[in-house]
Amino acid sequence: MDSTFIKISDIEIENSNVKTFYFDYELKSKPGQFIMLWIPGTDQKPFSVSFDNGQKFGLTIFKRGPATNKLFKMKIGDRVGINGPYGTNFTINPNLHYIMVAGGYGAAPLKFLTQTINGAAIDFIAGGRTKDNLLFEEELTKIPNLNLHITTDDGSKGYKGFVTDVLVELLAKIDPAQKDKTLVVTCGPELMQKKVLDICNEHNINCEVSIERYMKCGMGICGQCVIDDLGICMCKDGPVVNQKLANQIFEFGKYHRDKSGVIVHSQ
């Protein structure tokens, strides 16, 4: 592993707790994949890629702990360590009709996906607890053939309710002959994703889910992100899994393990 210690080339403020950091670096990542970001002396954490045009990539990051606090104090020209990209990606097929279901900051990899499937018909359902949890509205409206559906739990913007309400409505409108040309992709809180998976199962619609588990190495070695009962690592066989695999993950929507490996039940 050679040093990949690179400069922040640009910083975009998304909201008071979220920034996108850009790097002029050929990462060659695909939507859904992640990198390990090293903040020297503090920590190294996994982050999904929210932008990659071949010459430049971006990470949209929520300030929540010591590493991200330190990162938020960094300026253009400051350097961080990058390893990756790691993991699986969402299917890229411009001939499909995509329904993207994003919960809060789970919108990051899905926004990246919208920029790689040129011309595909996209319904993008962006949900948040309040309007402050919504990301990328302006960018998403610029994507051709994209219908943006905004939901908030408190009704502060768009439809008052859940992303899954909109998903059910959209699925009801799909011509049965077009079902196999439709792909639902989702990223966000696990209980929301579980509901999306259940709805897709009921409607017999193909879907892909991004599974978040505590990841330490990103290389399938440490065993921190293995799932019950399959015993496979989500950093390697995930984070994006297809419907069949998602349905086999016993713990999905029920529990995960923390940094020490202790089971934490979903809420």
């Binding site: 070695i221 440490c222 019950d228 009962d229 015993g231 393990r257």
Partner: peptide, 15 residues
């Protein structure tokens, strides 16, 4: 030390 502690992970190594 490799692949952790969980029963499922250890079983995957046997598989």
């Amino acid at each position: 030390g490799i692949l952790g502690v969980t029963g499922a992970s250890l079983n995957n190594v046997i598989k």
